[in-house]
């Protein structure tokens, strides 16, 4: 299945394509967000990250589905 991953701020360094912001990942069925982080070699403490799946904040264990749009970001406290 394919998931569109949007990387924010410092996490952009993980990928090299384009401006490093959006990548489509091919994942095995029933993969969770935690599996994706492992596959992408993102070693940041997930406690300090936010996961926004199709516009809603969700948790590390959330199982992904084909066509999902996932935003990965470091949690920051305001503007």
């Amino acid at each position: 299945m394919k998931v569109e991953v949007h990387l924010h701020a410092t996490l952009r360094r993980v990928i090299k394509e384009g401006n490093g912001q959006v990548i489509v990942m091919d994942l095995p069925e029933n993969s969770a967000i935690g599996d994706l982080l492992e596959l992408m070699k993102i070693d940041q403490d997930p406690d300090h990250m936010l996961f926004v799946l199709n516009g809603r904040t969700t948790s590390l264990g959330q199982v992904l589905e084909d066509g999902d749009v996932l935003n990965l970001m470091t949690a920051v406290s305001g503007g």
Partner: peptide
């Protein structure tokens, strides 16, 4: 804290894509 690095490199403007994604 990882947040400190984000603020140093990107500032509060990092909130634009976060807020948009929500």
């Amino acid at each position: 804290h990882p947040q400190t690095k984000v603020y140093a490199d990107y500032g509060t403007a990092a909130m634009a894509r976060i807020c948009h994604s929500l």
